[in-house]
Design a protein around this nucleic acid. Structure first.
Lengths: 114, 114
DNA sequence: CAGCATCCCACGGGATACTG
DNA sequence: CAGTATCCCGTGGGATGCTG
């Protein structure tokens, strides 16, 4: 979700929603945070956690979450190389949201099944 | 967020996140739900609640939320015409998410200010 | 293993103008 | 007031193939 800035409009105080959404709005972002919440995880692990995501997009999301300070990237200089991603303190702040999304998602499924 | 279906992949059980996101992922959708949570509201009221949204997009979101059963549309046949939108029971299910998003958004702002 | 590089396109969404 | 109708464009993201 990009929200091109509309011109000639002053920003609104109640944009905390959009602010937060700008973090978790990207495709697969919630899933990434979700799977990192139970501990650090490697690239390939995330790939199989979220089989539908392409390598490119996963990399994109990870980079951008790293830049935003949501997660940390640690390269272990072994052979074969391995990289561990982990939520930062800031990243953990998002857990209530992710949790809520997941729970509502579940309830929606249950409702649909009925 | 559109998530073009990748081919030759079986869907994943843990997609409650994406499921829920498909509802609130659209631009301004969280805001709409937020402003409807305190009671029914008319089109123009929503427009001034969310000054950055264009009429076209607001209509789009409202129609699509209506189709999905999140909100109801009631046309009062007066002159000038007025239309009231209100959250349905299903729509109310999303409040925990919206609330969480808003709270985290606030906390992010506070953190950034510090 | 953990990625870049490229190509490519659907579609979300802004601007603007018009209507019952 | 509560929308529709068009036009148009940026970008998110999938597919595929290559590298240190």
């Amino acid at each position: 979700m990009t929200l091109k800035r509309r011109k000639n409009r002053t920003p609104h105080p109640q944009c905390a929603l959009s602010d937060c959404m700008s973090f978790i709005g990207g495709a697969w972002t919630p899933n990434i945070i979700w799977y990192l919440s139970s501990g650090p995880r490697r690239f390939s692990e995330l790939r199989s956690d979220i089989p539908l995501v392409s390598a490119k997009v996963l990399t994109q999301r990870l980079r951008e979450l790293e830049d935003r300070g949501i997660l940390s990237r640690a390269v272990k200089d072994t052979s074969p190389p391995s990289v561990e991603y982990a939520l930062t303190a800031l990243g953990l702040e998002f857990m209530p949201v992710i949790q809520a999304i997941s729970e509502v998602g579940q309830r929606l499924k249950a409702r649909a099944a009925a």
